[in-house]
């Protein structure tokens, strides 16, 4: 019983840590607007945390909790609510895609994060097409595909470093959070 309680509180703390980190990364991204004049092109720094959580905890529920709480917090503090729906659509699609690719087990962390970056953009554009009823938005697709690949690659590289080294650390201490 004591063990169970300890594990639960450990989970909660880890989750809170991840959300705080993702929140900070989103804030950093809003501080340096990396914009090419095309809506939807972002670095996706917060995705580092998503990929990291997915690979460290191997728990899909935790991953989705981190994604959703981060989006709500960001939208309520320094985003605007009207664009929150686009973030949610992109995040759901990229989250589902990453989990599915992760489950197949044939992709490395970089492949998974590239797919996540691209799917996030595709989800956002599909959502915008539905809400604005403007089919011409599909013309943004090539740009968003390329930016998703490049940013996803960078995100995958950084999360690969984190996962590889922190896994070593946790394994040596035998307290890998799950």
């Amino acid at each position: 019983m004591i063990l169970l309680k300890r594990r639960n509180s450990q989970k909660l703390t880890m989750c809170a840590n991840f959300i705080a980190l993702a929140f900070i990364f989103s804030y950093l991204e809003s501080l340096f607007p990396f914009s090419l004049g095309i809506p939807g092109v972002k670095l996706g720094l917060a995705n580092i945390i998503t990929v990291y959580v997915l690979y460290m905890t191997k728990n899909f529920k935790t991953t989705f909790i981190v994604i959703f709480v981060r989006i709500f917090l960001v939208a309520f503090t320094f985003g605007n609510l009207s664009t929150m729906i686009y973030s949610i659509c992109g995040a759901i699609l990229s989250g589902l895609g990453m989990v599915m690719l992760y489950k197949t087990g044939i992709f490395t962390i970089i492949g998974v994060s590239i797919a996540g970056g691209v799917l996030h953009n595709v989800g956002q554009i599909l959502c915008a097409m539905l809400i604005l009823e403007t089919n011409e938005l599909i013309y943004y697709l090539p740009v968003l595909l390329f930016s998703g690949i490049i940013c996803g690659f960078g995100v995958g590289f950084i999360s690969n470093i984190c996962v590889t080294n922190l896994k070593k650390f946790y394994n040596s201490k035998e307290n890998l959070p799950s």
């Binding site: 490395t108 590239i114 697709l141």
Partner: peptide
């Protein structure tokens, strides 16, 4: 060491790049 991609990754990336160019 951290940039290692396997065959599936490269295939996925190439497909996406091709899609991008085709739609362009």
């Amino acid at each position: 060491k951290y940039l290692k991609m396997n065959f599936a990754d490269i295939l996925l990336t190439l497909t996406l790049v091709l899609c991008g160019f085709a739609s362009l």
